[in-house]
Structure formats: C-alpha cells, structure tokens
C-alpha cells in the first residue's frame, strides 16, 4: 500500500472480505491505489490518517451505519463518496445522498459501472477549464449568454427550466435527489412537492431530448432522483 502520488487513492469501507478483494482487483487493474477498512471505526481511522481521493462506502457495516460515518466525514471533508446498497433500500440511498454522498451503486453492480462512476466523480474534483459552452446530444448550452440551441437553432426555455438545466449541468453525471433539486429551485418548503419536479422534467425533456418518452440524457433514478448524463454509454 505504498502511496503513489500519480495514482488516485480509493478507500473501500465494506465488511465483506470478498467484496473488498474484488473491488481491489477491479480498481487496481484500472490504475487506482486501494486501501481497505472492514468497519466504520477502521474506516474513520483510515480517513483521518490520510485523506483518500474517493471513498466507496457500504451502508450496512457491523459497528454502525455507513450514513453515520458519512455524516461525520462531511463535517470536515468534501471527498467524493460512492455508497453501496442493495435493491429495495431506496430510503437509505436517499438518506445517504442527502447526507452528502455523491453517488450510489446497487449491488450487484458491474465493474464497468463502478469505474464510470468513479471517473465521473474524480473528474469533478479536478475540473477542466470551466467552459461556458457545453454540448450534449444535439443541444448546445451557452452558460455565459444563457442561451440554449438545438442544431444551431435557438430554443426557448422558461427561467425555471433553465435553472433546472443549469443545476444538472453543474452536477453532470451525478445523481441528484428529488429533495436536493426541489430545495435548490423551489426552496426548502417545496421539498415534498415531487410533482413540480415531474412536471418540469417532462417539459425539459420535451424540449431537449430527441424522444421524451425514452430519454437518454435526463435519466430517472427510481425512487431516488435524477441524473444528467452528457455522454450516454453506447453513443
């Protein structure tokens, strides 16, 4: 476990030794340095010893919930955190995301998916030159001029639709919970008004997606929130 300054350092906190071993294999093959912790306490110690570049955190740890560890971590560090959860635990996922996790993976997950999420997270901490122009699909967004165009033809967005788009572009490839979006756009009192969001998402998709009935960029994360993907896989 030598610290190689060129290799991103990933901390895996999971109580299953097989999962840890597999993650190590997958991540090391992809060029990451991996540290492991089997419990929340050990994870905490590792985090304090040396800050990693990203954390992969299982929610079901033997000594305490992963969410607790995450909350404490968020008091002093913005390090990207990917949580691992099992299907049907949408409540816990949402709670973890609201507590500051950056993304989640549902077990069983493919290694390609894991690596893609990690790449997106690590890219965000070292952003390229903040471009004022941004492209996805046939859409071009000029953030400085607040202009949106499809195939060069200007597209009219209402102020709320534009604010929504701006939020997604700022957090591209990252999952945003309903609560996060609602709070950002409509204020803390609107956190429960999911139907606002559904309605505006449909309008936004109708304007920006090629096929609003089968969106490729503005993806729904069931029971959790939305994720904006600028370059969908398979394009």
């Amino acid at each position: 476990m030598t610290a190689d300054p060129t290799r991103p350092d990933i901390l895996v906190v999971d109580d299953e030794i097989q999962i840890r071993r597999l993650l190590r294999l997958t991540l090391e093959a992809a060029g990451y340095a991996v540290r492991e912790a089997p419990t929340a306490q050990a994870g905490q110690a590792e985090l304090v010893r040396r800050g990693p570049d990203a954390v992969i955190l299982d929610l079901g740890l033997p000594d305490e919930s992963g969410i607790e560890l995450l909350r404490r971590l968020r008091e002093w560090s913005p390090v990207p955190v990917v949580i691992l959860s099992v299907l049907g635990q949408e409540d816990r996922k949402v709670a973890a995301l609201d507590a500051g996790a950056d993304d989640y993976l549902t077990k069983p997950f493919g290694s390609a998916e894991l690596l893609a999420r990690l790449r997106a997270l690590l890219r965000r901490i070292k952003p390229a030159v903040a471009a004022s122009r941004f492209r996805f699909g046939r859409i071009e967004v000029d953030l400085a001029a607040r202009r949106v165009a499809r195939d060069g033809a200007p597209l009219h967005l209402t102020s709320m639709e534009y604010a929504l788009l701006q939020l997604f572009v700022a957090h591209r490839d990252k999952v945003l919970t309903h609560r996060q979006i609602l709070r950002e756009l409509w204020g803390p009192n609107a956190e429960r008004h999911t139907h606002y969001l559904r309605t505006y998402m449909l309008r936004l998709r109708r304007k920006l997606e090629d096929d609003a009935d089968f969106p490729r960029h503005f993806l729904t994360e069931s029971g959790v929130g939305y994720r904006f993907v600028s370059e969908p896989a398979g394009t």
Binding site: E16, Q18, I19, L22, L25, T26, A29, G60, V86, K107, P108, F109, G110, S111
Partner: peptide, 21 residues
C-alpha cells in the same frame, strides 16, 4: 437473508466479469 444470498452472487458475477476481461 437477502444480504447473505446476494453478496456471494455479486462476488460471483464480478469475478466472472473480471475473468472474461
């Protein structure tokens, strides 16, 4: 029970994926 059944399956799948790659 769900955790105990699914974890080995997840490991199995990831391992096969790695093998194939």
């Amino acid at each position: 029970v769900s955790h105990e059944l699914k974890t080995p399956l997840a490991v199995l799948r990831s391992a096969v994926e790695r093998l194939e790659a």
